[in-house]
Amino acid sequence: MIRTSGLTKRVSTSEGELTILEDVDLHIENGERVAIVGASGSGKSTLLGLMAGLDTATSGEIWLHGRQLSAMDEEQRALLRAQAVGFVFQTFQLLPSLTALENVMLPIELKGDAGAGAGEKARGLLDRVGLADRWHHYPNQLSGGEQQRVAIARAFATNAPILFADEPTGNLDTATGGKVIDILFELNREFDTTLVLVTHDERLAHQCDRMIKLAAGRIAGEESSVEAVHA
């Protein structure tokens, strides 16, 4: 489902070239829940961005949903994202001028479905994340946890088979973060999506099937989660 081979990312800085990722090989199966963990600056978010087609690698190959990203231009990658990828971000990334409902409807509409079905589906998802009565609220009228729940509903709106989550609880307190993660995992199971979760929270990572550790841009280890195995 997701595969990288010799994945390397370097950027130019005023002090010379900086290697962020180096020779990363990994393989994630359909329906698998994988956590990528590591300290700040280890390259977690860069790896997620590359795997999701948000950025291009300096060298190496990435296959996403059966397509080789390095052979695609930005337009093709965007179409692939529309078709196969959902996102949840640490900073929620909701459009502030749209209501919760409209934010959830947006990816459905961008896929070309602007009919009544989009609204119904979005309402159903908001209901599913516990925000049935807040659909008409704007992001700035919602708490951080509620905004993240809207973002989760949006991520599942197009039935994308792959979900990327970047520090989904990073901006939330422990209790709220716990509830958000519960919802995320619940929907993940329900929609049977592949989940790639970037986090520095090892407790959260242990809820996934597998945990890949990054250090200084390289894979430093990998382990299966006991908690996940027992789930």
């Binding site: 999701a52 948000l54 930005e74 337009e75 965007a78 179409l79 692939l80 994202r81 529309a82 078709q83 990828v85 996102f87 990334q93 909701l94 459009l95 947006l106 990816p107 961008l110 896929k111 949006r154 197009t158």
Partner: peptide, 16 residues
Amino acid sequence: YDYVAILKTLGCTSRR
């Protein structure tokens, strides 16, 4: 800028 980045993340092409 942020709007467009989000729209692109959601699969919106540059042409759209």
